[in-house]
Amino acid sequence: MPRPPFPTKRRAADLAYDAIEALISTLRLEPGSPVVEAELVELTQLGRTPVREALLRMVSTGLIDQQPRRGLLVSHIDLADHLDVIQTRRVLERLIAACAARRATAAQRQEIVRCAEKMMKAAARGHLEDYMRADHELDEVNHQASQNHSAVKCVVPLVVQCRRFWYAYQHEGEIAEGARHHMELAQGIATGDEKAAVHGADQLMDYLERFARRVIDS
């Protein structure tokens, strides 16, 4: 039986993870900066236990480093490693797109196109925050629709790394192009066309790779 398209209740630790992830990916928590649990509890308005659980997950995925005598630090952006991040993400995104095209509910197919449309509108206005918010929403629907928990678990830290990289070097990016590729992915999933969905995922990864190479070569 397929999962409900939009869960009505999420664990506090998941909410804490999302909130801290947003702080890291938008560089409000800068690379190399110390992670102070009490500050995160105040920022997220969640308890110490869910915040601590979220931080442990981030240590395991490499978003946060645990160093002797220095405690927890936000991991640095590694330019040399970033192309490998994209190559690894490409394999997972192709799988997730194909699964979503096969398994998405009617409501999820409509929602993923709606998110892509929001990205297109935000890009046309040049509104970065709205664009990134819609991007995050599209990822969530896509991941739910795929019903492939293993692939989603592996891809989420890579998505955050790419989002953080993009924020750090956004002067090299073009959000209108990114929005177009997200729409291509969304339409492939919405129509149930696995080949088109995978092609959209590839186009999106090509865009991120071109962006990364411009940054690395500059």
Rank of each mutant, 00 (worst) to 15 (best):
D193Y: 06
D14M: 04
Q203K: 14
A12Y: 10
A104W: 07
E111M: 15
T88L: 12
S60K: 08
R10A: 04
E117K: 13
L73N: 06
E30W: 10
V35G: 10
A19Y: 01
R11G: 07
R214W: 04
A212I: 10
V35R: 11
L43F: 12
A145R: 02
D135R: 02
S25Q: 07
E21T: 15
H171Q: 11
C154Q: 12
Q147S: 12
E37M: 12
P50R: 11
S75W: 10
G178A: 05
L83T: 12
A13P: 05
K118L: 14
M119S: 07
H182G: 04
L95P: 02
V51T: 14
L95W: 15
A100C: 07
Q45S: 11
R164K: 09
T26D: 00
A116P: 10
L95A: 13
H149A: 12
E172D: 11
D202R: 15
M58G: 09
T88Q: 14
V74D: 02
A124K: 11
I96N: 01
I77K: 00
A98P: 01
Q203W: 09
W166L: 15
M205K: 09
K9T: 08
N148P: 15
S218A: 15
A80Q: 06
D14C: 04
Q170G: 01
L29G: 02
P68C: 04
L185A: 03
W166P: 00
H127G: 07
A196Q: 15
A101D: 12
T26M: 00
G200N: 06
P4Q: 08
Q144Y: 06
P50G: 11
Q187P: 03
D14S: 14
V36M: 06
